[in-house]
Design a protein around this nucleic acid. Structure first.
Lengths: 126, 126
DNA sequence: CTAAAATTTAGAATAATTCTAAAAATTATT
DNA sequence: AATAATTTTTAGAATTATTCTAAATTTTAG
């Protein structure tokens, strides 16, 4: 786990390691800040709201998580870093991955001068 | 303007008419709540923050506006109701339309049981 | 082992939005 | 038109998610 953090330029500390272990267990997840606070509490990890925010945002900036915004208000953090899309279940306020090859996108528009693509987000609201 | 509101099941009142006139002038716009408050102030329309929120949300539910969420925090309301996609200029916090035929999407994934598509949102962050 | 630097934290601050309940406007009824 | 009933608007309080602050703690470096 430390080498994973190091590889992304993040110093492994106790809470970063603990949160990384909650999240990177090999399964794809879409967690909110509250989800992580609950998970941490369940594992008796003593931490603070501010630290969870700090850590998740650091992970996102470092490329360990993908931040997904589908609604004003709550942000989700996605542990699946490979290219993919999302279903958003509006009534359940829940995301689900769509494999990249389930949607075929071709012919991107020309970009405004001096711009490059940071990401392409496809969300199907259902 | 009244007939437009009536057609969408919205009773035309003074502020609804005033906000509708600010927004539906034939040009496509992406406005935030603050933008509308500023526009209204510039036109000497006397209204309140709560009313702008109420009105924009009513318009969105009624299908007169499309609510677009690209960042946690601020919501945008899009006056372009025809099918299209968006560039999001992250540094400027600004949206720009992408014509529907500039991106070719084919082969949608199968939906979970009992679900139907409410919308497909494609955002290219640049 | 100690000093310096970085991280964590509790609680305050902020920002966008929603809620509340009273006032005003609109619509319906006489 | 006058009055009653209903709907809308509003100011300000409340809520929610998030960020900030500055002190305490942990981690790293010497």
């Amino acid at each position: 786990m430390d080498s994973m953090l190091n590889k992304h330029g993040i110093r492994p500390t106790k809470i970063r390691r603990a949160i990384a272990e909650l999240l990177f267990d090999g399964t794809d997840k879409h967690v909110s800040v509250d989800d992580v606070i609950d998970l941490a509490r369940a594992q008796k990890i003593k931490t603070s709201v501010a630290s969870v925010y700090n850590t998740l945002n650091q992970f996102a900036v470092a490329g360990l998580l993908r931040k997904v915004t589908v609604e004003q208000g709550r942000a989700f953090f996605d542990t699946n870093l490979s290219e993919h899309h999302h279903f958003y279940f509006e009534d359940e306020e829940r995301l689900e991955d769509i494999p990249v090859d389930a949607i075929n996108i071709s012919g991107l528009p020309k970009l405004p001068k001096g711009r490059r693509i940071k990401s392409i987000d496809v969300t199907i609201r259902i």
